[in-house]
């Protein structure tokens, strides 16, 4: 018997109605359009996409901040969407937000912020000691519990956010662009920390990012999201090494890289009128080619 994946998305949909004047529905936006994926225990799944791809909506649905309009979300094989989904079950998935400055309440100390999940889930035992242990886990001195977010650097704030997410011993962390607001040197240390913690605590990660270079180094499996659909998925080395879908190729070709080796592995994208095409251009071109083939 194989263990069920830690996270499984089954044909997930989210449709936002477009409203005109007087709240009349004029149309709809398919933000997430049939996304399925599963992440086995201990893995890092990278969800790559640009703005409007639906990656944030997927994160919000997993976290219960918005309800899907279709499909199912399973944690350890059990749906979290039903009415019977308990707080205890929800606890298993926590999130680290993109902007550590905004995800910590500016008026509350670090200690108070980390205590929120402990109080909410009725953590047994000494909560103050737990806060200190969590700070230690993310390699911050325990006296940081008394500090306010504005007294911390960006990297330190993100460590606090990670400590808070780990407070109630989740199985899965949703990382929504956790380092995009940070300097590269800080980013490297945060990723290192996440890798260490993942190994130590047996965590599973859903890593959402537009930074493909970072994803190449952190994730094992990757899904490329375009307009609410996963257009390509597979082992990261394989997808990045031999991209099949045009959009994946365009994404990879657009990455600003810093070495000749990287440059060599970026796929070549045909220029249109001397310009790099947009994803829409590229896909339209492909469509045309396909219909021509069919006619021939």
């Amino acid at each position: 018997m194989t263990a069920s994946p830690v996270l499984e998305l089954r044909d997930l949909h989210k449709v936002f109605p477009l409203r005109g004047t007087f709240g009349r529905v004029r149309g709809e936006v398919r933000a997430v359009d049939g996304v399925s994926l599963s992440i086995p225990k201990g893995q890092v799944y990278g969800l790559a996409g640009e703005s409007g791809s639906g990656k944030s909506t997927i994160a919000r649905m997993i976290m219960g901040l918005t309800r899907p309009t279709g499909g199912d979300i399973l944690l350890d094989g059990v749906s979290i969407l039903g009415r019977q989904a308990s707080l205890a079950h929800r606890r298993k998935v926590q999130m680290v937000f993109q902007n550590p400055g905004a995800s910590l309440n500016p008026r509350r100390t670090v200690g108070q912020s980390i205590r929120v999940p402990l109080d909410a889930h009725g953590f047994p035992g000494n909560r103050q000691r737990r806060v200190a242990a969590l700070l230690e886990m993310v390699q911050l001195p325990r006296h940081f519990a008394e500090r306010y977010p504005h007294e911390l650097s960006g990297g330190q704030k993100q460590r606090v956010a990670i400590a808070r997410a780990l407070a109630v011993e989740p199985r899965l962390l949703v990382l929504d662009e956790p380092t995009s607001a940070l300097d590269v040197s800080v980013q490297a240390r945060i990723i290192e920390l996440l890798e260490d913690l993942g190994g130590e605590l047996g965590l599973t990660y859903l890593f959402i990012s537009h930074d493909l270079s970072l994803m190449r180094n952190f994730a094992q499996t990757v899904g490329v999201l375009y307009r609410g659909r996963i257009v390509e998925t597979g082992a990261v080395a394989q997808v990045f090494g031999a991209p099949q879908h045009d959009y994946t190729r365009l994404l990879l070709a657009s990455v600003p890289v810093i070495s000749a080796e990287e440059e060599a592995m970026r796929p070549a994208i045909p220029l249109i009128n001397g310009e790099i095409p947009t994803a829409e251009d590229l896909l339209a071109l492909r469509q045309q080619a396909r219909s021509k083939e069919r006619q021939a």
Partner: peptide, 21 residues
């Protein structure tokens, strides 16, 4: 704001969010 959403995802009660966050 993200910190309010963060508190929601952490399982905080509505009373907590209103009066503490």
């Amino acid at each position: 704001q993200e910190f309010v959403e963060a508190a929601e995802t952490l399982g905080a009660s509505r009373r907590h969010i209103l009066f503490r966050e």
